[in-house]
Simulated scan of single mutants.
Amino acid sequence: MEVIPNNPLLRVTKEDLEFARNSYVITDIQRINESIDAIIEWMQKQDHLVESSKHTSREYLERIYMLALGSTENAKKKIDKLFTMRGMVPEICLHRTPGEFERLLSCVKFVPMPKLVPKDRTRVLVTQVIGKTIDDFSLLEYCRYGNMIGEYRMYHDYNAGDRFICDLNGVSIISKMNPVVMKKYDLIGEAYATKVKSVHIINGPPYIDTLVSLLKTAMRNKVAGRLHVHSSYEDLYEYIDKEVLPEDYGGDELPIAKLAEKWKEHLSKPEMIQWMEDQDKLVSDESKRSSNNFNQEYMGMPGSFRKLNVD
């Protein structure tokens, strides 16, 4: 892939593409294509991945290869891990429809910002609580939606990492934080191996220290060390350029509400509904796996991960 096709929601320039590839040390186009060919051939020979290989695009595999830092063997391991985990946590990864998120999006907006941060080509993703109450908020629904957006970006985005902003608007959400859901969501993020450059909390409630401690228990250590709490937007500007932020935070981009509406309209298109159905096929068939040691090897726990209950 020489250029990223134009996308109505995510802007990626040729310079962004080159910067990201350099940051992951994958600059040889011929080598990239040869590696993707090798990965596809390997998938077609794995009994538990044969069916999913029929629905896996080259664009998707290139992102996996990039996140594997240009290692074909590591890319294979990531695919095996990711496709297996997607099937193990269907409550987060599978059977999604755009209409199911109406209630969630009435109280929370989650949007990737259109432009990358110029200095390091990272993508900023904003979560914004939009009401004074959080009664309609479901952590599981939020994780399903966030995972869906993340998977969409695997086809249309190309960057050197992610930066997350969580605007709590002073609202109490600690009662909604289910540790099991939080841990599952983090494990899925780890399977994708995306680079989380930083996490920023703004407009936190009085109990923010308690919330931060809870969040850190569900995060990988490296990510937990990159969590910041800001008392002002000016403090946030030290980490993220204003030009890529929404008007809500003194930036140059459209307000979060308008960006969220664009995402809602786009995800409701017939071709996107078909895409969601196709994503359900990116799972391994564990009945055909030659060995059944996935839970112990990747999750660090014996037995079935499905036995973890979520209220």
Rank of each mutant, 00 (worst) to 15 (best):
C143Y: 03
C143P: 02
R144S: 01
R144Q: 00
Y145T: 05
G146Y: 01
G146K: 05
N147V: 01
M148I: 04
M148E: 05
I149T: 03
I149Y: 02
I149R: 00
G150Q: 10
E151F: 04
Y152V: 08
Y152P: 02
Y152L: 10
R153L: 10
R153N: 05
R153Y: 00
M154I: 02
M154A: 11
Y155P: 02
Y155N: 13
H156Y: 14
H156F: 10
Y158W: 14
N159K: 09
N159I: 05
N159Q: 13
G161H: 03
D162V: 14
R163Y: 04
R163C: 10
R163L: 06
F164S: 02
F164D: 04
D167G: 09
D167A: 08
L168E: 03
L168C: 05
N169E: 07
N169M: 08
V171Y: 03
S172Q: 15
I173D: 09
I173T: 13
I174K: 15
S175I: 09
S175L: 09
K176A: 12
N178P: 02
N178C: 10
N178H: 14
P179N: 03
P179E: 03
P179F: 06
P179T: 06
V180W: 07
V180I: 15
V181T: 15
M182Q: 10
M182H: 05
K183V: 01
Y185V: 01
Y185A: 15
I188D: 03
I188V: 15
E190F: 07
A191H: 01
A191L: 07
Y192M: 13
Y192N: 08
Y192F: 15
A193R: 10
A193W: 01
T194E: 14
T194Q: 14
K195T: 07
V196Y: 01
V196R: 04
S198D: 09
V199Y: 03
I201M: 13
I201Q: 05
I201E: 05
N203L: 06
N203I: 06
N203E: 07
G204H: 14
G204A: 14
P205G: 03
P205F: 06
P206H: 09
P206M: 11
Y207V: 14
Y207Q: 15
I208A: 13
I208M: 14
T210M: 15
T210A: 14
T210I: 15
T210Q: 13
L211M: 14
V212S: 12
S213T: 13
S213D: 11
S213C: 07
S213V: 02
L215D: 01
L215I: 11
L215A: 11
K216H: 04
K216N: 03
K216L: 00
T217H: 04
